[in-house]
């Protein structure tokens, strides 16, 4: 499985970008017991047969790598949630989009650490492509609550793959993560 929950979430988020989504909404809500993550996109979606098969580590769409026989994003998520009493549900409709709902159990010994939210966001904001990304964050214990939107960041900064802009993006997100 992935080293941190943020790595796993970024991996799943990248599927939404690659599915040519126009809008991706991620809720990232945590309390001391659980981390709830919901990723909803309006990308190309999957039919029921594909939806069943993506849960198999020995399945991949064969488009990215013709000779590959593995696809590990979703299987890693299944492994993490199954072994730590977490939960996930994956719903999709071809041509409409996909929604992934996850609850990570933060009280289980074997749950990986949450990881670095700032780095995850910088990466998720700066993939190539013309997609909107809305990130809603809540941390009950820290009384933290904010939303960042990719189009607002592009309006303020311009090209998010330019490192001078990424440096400012990092400062901005770090400041949102400060305690109120």
């Amino acid at each position: 499985m992935h080293y941190s929950l943020c790595d796993s979430i970024l991996d799943l988020f990248q599927n939404s970008v690659e599915a040519n989504s126009k809008t991706i909404i991620m809720d990232f809500f945590q309390n001391p017991k659980s981390l709830f993550v919901n990723i909803k996109d309006d990308g190309k979606g999957m039919d029921q047969k594909t939806l069943d098969r993506v849960q198999d580590p020995f399945y991949t769409d064969g488009i990215k790598h013709k000779h590959r026989k593995v696809g590990l994003g979703i299987p890693f998520l299944i492994q993490t949630t199954e072994m730590t009493n977490g939960y996930f549900s994956l719903k999709s409709e071809k041509g409409v989009g996909t929604e992934l709902n996850i609850s990570f159990n933060l009280e289980h010994w074997d749950t990986p650490p949450i990881g670095n939210i700032v780095d995850m966001l910088i990466s998720a904001m700066s993939f190539d492509g013309d997609y909107e990304f809305i990130f809603n964050r809540e941390d009950e214990q820290r009384n933290l609550n904010y939303t960042v939107t990719r189009s607002d960041l592009i309006d303020a900064l311009g090209d998010l793959s330019q490192v001078t802009n990424m440096i400012l993006l990092k400062e901005f997100i770090e400041s949102q993560e400060l305690d109120n």
Binding site: H2, Y3, C6, D7, L10, D11, Q14, G71, L72, G73, F76, N116, D119, M120, I122, S123, F127, K170
Partner: peptide, 15 residues
């Protein structure tokens, strides 16, 4: 930044 890259620490490299 595929599954393999992320699992191996690509996010840390970017940072």
């Amino acid at each position: 930044m595929g599954t393999c890259g992320i699992a191996a620490g690509a996010k840390d490299a970017i940072s």
